[in-house]
Simulated assay, not measured.
Amino acid sequence: MTATLARPLPRPDAQTRPYWDACAQGQLTYQSCTRCGRVQFTPRALCEQCQCTDLGWHLSERIGTVLTFTTVHRAPLPVFKAMTPYVIALIDMKEGFRLMANATADVSQKIAIGSTVQIGFTEVNGMTLPIVQSLIEMPR
Rank of each mutant, 00 (worst) to 15 (best):
L90R: 09
P76V: 11
T53E: 11
T70R: 13
T2D: 09
G126F: 04
F97Y: 15
M93L: 15
L59P: 06
P18C: 13
V72G: 10
P43Y: 07
R44T: 02
L77S: 13
T34F: 04
V117E: 04
Q51P: 00
G114S: 08
L90E: 10
A24K: 15
L28N: 01
E123V: 10
A89P: 05
G114H: 09
V107M: 08
V87F: 01
A14N: 09
Q49D: 11
D106R: 14
Q25G: 08
S115H: 14
G26M: 07
C47P: 03
I113E: 06
Q51L: 12
R38D: 12
T29Q: 08
I111C: 09
Q27V: 14
E61C: 10
R98I: 07
D92S: 07
V66L: 09
C36Y: 02
H73G: 05
N102E: 14
E61V: 04
L46F: 14
Q27D: 09
C50G: 02
P43R: 00
S60A: 13
L99T: 03
Q25Y: 07
R11F: 09
L99I: 05
Q49K: 09
Q27P: 01
R17T: 11
K81I: 08
T4V: 10
D106A: 15
P12I: 13
L67E: 15
G56P: 00
P76S: 06
G37C: 06
T104N: 02
T116D: 04
M83N: 15
F80Q: 03
R44N: 07
T4Q: 11
E48I: 03
C52P: 04
K94T: 12
P78C: 01
I113P: 00
P43S: 02
C50N: 00
V124Q: 09
T68E: 02
T29A: 03
Y30N: 03
R17Q: 15
L55H: 01
V107Q: 10
Y86W: 03
L59Y: 01
V124S: 05
R35K: 13
R38F: 13
I113H: 02
P12K: 06
D21T: 10
S108E: 09
F121C: 07
Q49N: 12
G64K: 03
Y86E: 05
F80A: 04
V79L: 12
C52L: 00
F41E: 03
T42W: 11
